[in-house]
Design a protein around this nucleic acid. Structure first.
Lengths: 176, 176
DNA sequence: GTTGCATATTCAACAAATTGAATATAGGCT
DNA sequence: AGCCTATATTCAATTTGTTGAATATGCAAC
């Protein structure tokens, strides 16, 4: 049950709407936490009902209105209590690797095509992460300090994407 | 719903008991699929009830009896059908990274300790993977061919563990 | 002699995630 | 006018996954 803690951590760094959070999960922490928009919106409601978050409605022109969520002191407390307990083990699910594992039963051409597609997707993500990293490097104090640890996590994302790309190239060569 | 396909893929390569499978998931494919023993045993029952697997009871001396599961032609068919469809996106959950992300609210000493522990765990896993890789390299034909693709997936596991270890060292340096 | 580990499996209650539909504003495209 | 995309959010049914307990054999350590 750490989706709530992921949300609290991200809103603690910077408050925002559910829609913002969905994008942040998708674009900047997808190498360590996967969450769908339905999950995020549901958890935001739950967190607000438990007073760990509070929201402010923002009326917009040209766009639908939105709710900006912010972590409450109780929310910070909950996050801190969670931080004291040992972290649970990583969990990963990568269907493409199952496909490759069982690849002898598959059409090689299809397999190659899918590896190429995934490689392209990882390449795009690597670029995103690198751009974000550039932004964080060029921040002025005190923002740079504030983003020091998120930036550190981003560096793992970059390393993992690089490893993936390297591997995809080698695998494509090995298969053909 | 690809736990079933992961199980089918692994039993297709080599038949075995639930207990064997649990170990294989844990020791050799944990970088692309996480599954608990309860999940695996439940899914084995379901797969057998759908006739995608069949089991044979093996009476053992000195150890409890066991059931060896084997993929049926229907099971192969199910796996092949699944292989034709595009793979779903990877999903990952790494609570430790949330901790680091929100690390400003945590005790730095605790954070360092946990990174060290995780680093040690990744180091052990890397060694396991490397040993398994050695075994696969030294196989004689036709086994070597059979394990070519599983071996290829293992190489990603190794790259990812290496990336993780590198990152953990850099992070420990950066934090202290 | 009983505690702990490795082997081997099952069940049930509960929590979390997925799928799919629904709603609403507004700009741009054909 | 109708369609697509981006913004923004909600709900409900179903499927998955987690937690925790239970059972059983046998070896080794203390």
């Amino acid at each position: 049950m750490s989706l709530r803690h992921a949300i609290l951590a991200m809103l603690d760094i910077e408050k925002g709407s559910g829609y913002d959070l969905v994008k942040r999960f998708d674009q900047s922490v997808s190498y360590f936490w996967a969450a769908s928009y339905q999950q995020i919106y549901r958890e935001l409601q739950k967190l607000e009902s438990e007073a760990l978050l509070e929201s402010e409605e923002v009326i917009q022109q040209g766009k639908p209105d939105k709710k900006i969520y912010e972590v409450t002191p109780d929310g910070i407390n909950e996050l801190q209590k969670w931080l004291e307990k040992p972290a649970k083990a990583m969990k990963i699910k990568e269907p493409l690797l199952i496909k490759i594992y069982a690849g002898d039963l598959a059409d090689t051409a299809l397999l190659i095509e899918e590896i190429c597609q995934h490689k392209a997707a990882h390449s795009v993500r690597l670029q995103q992460y690198q751009e974000m990293s550039e932004l964080l490097i060029n921040l002025e104090q005190p923002l740079r300090s504030k983003y020091f640890l998120p930036h550190q996590t981003l560096k793992l994302g970059i390393k993992i994407e690089e490893a993936w790309l390297e591997w995809a190239e080698e695998t494509l060569e090995a298969i053909t």
